[in-house]
Design a protein around this nucleic acid. Structure first.
Lengths: 197, 197
DNA sequence: TGTACATCAGTGAACGCGCGTTCACTGATGTAC
DNA sequence: TGTACATCAGTGAACGCGCGTTCACTGATGTAC
């Protein structure tokens, strides 16, 4: 064996990571296998020794991007006072920076609709990642009951991802900024109602 | 002239209408020109005597679908007492029926992300349709100031479309239903805060 | 009223291209001696 | 320590296919006579 056993796994990870950028940027159908491999510094021929199909990579890349978003939320809130944590996440999500950097942003606005048209297996995997995301966000609302926190977190994620899609789609700077602002207000209002446990 | 002048325009309209169903169902990249023409009962050869390119049809079909949604909201609320109108629209949007009938539903959840990756011209056209949609929904909140109604309507549309995308993407019936429910609550809470003018 | 004709909406074969996928091959590498 | 070797990660040509688009043609139709 001329290569350490981890070498191929590292290459595979690199492909998934770079693909997650390319796919978020251009959509699930917007990048060819050859281009995805080029992003990882490889040629397309070796692709099928790493993945069963292009679709399999798309699902993996999506899952990785979801994990990264969750990790980012955890990092972002670690050193924050409890009562500011939720708003910090919301403000970072609904920022011009996130709107303008699709390739490194949350996978939901970029790929959600593609997953919705995908097969059941992919949608189940998304569902699990989405539940994780909801749980992490709900834990940033400790002043609410678990059930209410979960409901608010679910609505907040829907509002945040919808706002980002619309803000990116609107070919009109002023409208786009208005959408981000309205999204922030909307999430705050959702969280504010019946704050008491 | 062997055909009345409106004949070709009617055919064109039929193509746009049928395309709007096919594209909402399968995404902007999910249906071929040949299939889109077949939906209208035609063959693909005549396509370019009606449209400059496939993209041009996609944009027209998207715009038509947006108009239909706005018309639907107006019909739905015409005979309703003023104070119930907003909720009627929200409940119809965030219904299992809308989630499960992508082809005849709102174009934003189905095609928003595709438009976000489209050219500036298409995005400007979307922006105009989106402003219309926001205005119509804002007018269903007459108890708020125009500025606040517009902000709430914007946030509500983001929440509604985000919830539908997530509810469709979640390969898990219970989660999907939870998302619709959380979306309804979220929109209500957004509208409820500071209701007074 | 009947017929020949010009028009043009719609047809379907053909094009070039890029895609996902396959496969015979290469060459860098750790190991055996 | 140096060399021959087996392995297999990665290469790039080739495949079949479906796509968007083009174009020469057809045939149904309203009009002129």
């Amino acid at each position: 064996m001329r290569y350490v056993k981890e070498h191929k796994l590292q290459t595979r990870s690199r492909i998934v990571e770079m693909a997650s950028y390319g796919l978020r940027q251009n959509g699930a159908d917007g990048v060819s296998v050859a281009d995805l491999m080029k992003l990882a510094g490889l040629t397309h021929g070796g692709f099928y020794s790493h993945f069963e199909s292009r679709d399999a990579l798309v699902v993996e890349a999506f899952a990785l991007a979801m994990d990264r978003t969750v990790s980012r939320w955890l990092e972002l809130t670690r050193v924050m006072p409890v009562e500011e944590r939720f708003d910090v996440v919301v403000d970072a999500y609904l920022s011009p920076d996130h709107r303008d950097n699709q390739q490194s942003g949350c996978a939901l606005p970029a790929l959600g609709a593609d997953i919705a048209r995908s097969n059941q297996k992919a949608r189940r995997r998304l569902a699990r990642k989405l539940e994780e995301m909801i749980d992490v966000l709900a834990r940033l609302l400790p002043q609410k009951s678990p059930a209410e926190a979960r409901q608010v977190a679910t609505g907040a994620i829907a509002t945040m991802m919808g706002s980002i899609v619309l803000a990116r789609a609107a070919g009109n700077k002023m409208l786009s900024d208005d959408i981000l602002h309205a999204g922030r207000q909307a999430v705050r209002n959702q969280a504010a109602v019946r704050t008491a446990k």
